[in-house]
């Protein structure tokens, strides 16, 4: 079995989410898709079950030129800046949800080992290195297709992250910032170096070779349509 590999570059949040949904439709039986990408401009994504207005300081995001988008997956608010984001999409996957998280996250664990970082998968959806979170992941299953996407932090700016999120009070903000600085870490390597390592890691974890590919014209068109009509819409982002 081969994995169709796409490196789709840095795009706006709505397009990134539109392309994930597009690839869930175009993925073929027996050939999963692995996609690496980045965010330009930086963005905050929230989980499917979160309230946008409760979690995100929309005025501050606008002021800083930071995109905002609701994901189709659960989980929490994520600030996407200096990171490698991946999506794994497949019609074949373990029935158990934690089993599938473990299988896919093992690709990241093995990839990190290749840049000298010892990490481990911690259920439900985290990867920890040196006792600190280095990757968060989220999964959905729709119409027989699994999408798992997640982040690998290249660098982390906790102060900037919390300037964009709502917190109960300013006193709480300082405490949260300090708490996250103690609990989160980053790879501190270039995107290219990490991408090379992760490609190898995913091949080893999933037992398949990667087939270099590109987004088709039809896929790009569908992703742009979904970006415009769904992921950039108030109806979707203010769903809750």
């Amino acid at each position: 079995m081969t994995i169709r590999f796409l490196e789709t570059g840095a795009h706006a949040a709505a397009f990134n989410m539109g392309l994930d949904e597009t690839l869930m439709k175009s993925v073929r039986p027996g050939e999963p898709i692995l996609r690496f990408y980045a965010w330009k401009p930086p963005a905050v994504s929230i989980g499917y079950f979160q309230s946008l207005e409760d979690e995100v300081d929309l005025a501050e995001c606008k002021r800083q030129g930071v995109d905002v988008v609701r994901r189709v997956t659960g989980g929490g608010a994520v600030f996407h800046d200096a990171e490698l984001t991946y999506s794994y999409i497949s019609r074949e996957y373990p029935a158990g949800i934690i089993d599938s998280y473990k299988l896919i996250c093992n690709g990241i664990v093995l990839g990190l080992a290749k840049v000298g970082i010892q990490a481990q998968f911690v259920p439900i959806n985290d990867i920890i290195a040196g006792g600190k979170k280095i990757s968060g992941n989220a999964q959905t299953r729709k119409r027989g297709v699994l999408l798992q996407h997640g982040t690998l932090l290249l660098q982390v700016d906790v102060d900037r992250m919390f300037s964009l999120l709502k917190v109960p009070s300013e006193k709480m903000r300082d405490k949260l910032v300090q708490n996250v600085k103690e609990r989160v870490t980053s790879v501190n390597r270039s995107f290219e170096e990490v991408a090379t390592a992760l490609k190898s890691g995913f091949q080893e974890a999933l037992g398949d070779s990667l087939r270099e590919s590109a987004v088709s014209g039809a896929e790009k068109e569908m992703a742009e349509k979904l970006a415009k009509e769904k992921y950039a819409s108030k109806e979707w982002n203010f769903l809750r």
Binding site: Q50, G74, R240
Partner: peptide, 15 residues
């Protein structure tokens, strides 16, 4: 009631 948070639910539409 409204239930919100950073949990996961499968399928998501069951919220």
């Amino acid at each position: 009631l409204q239930i919100r948070g950073d949990f996961f639910m499968h399928p998501e539409e069951d919220l």
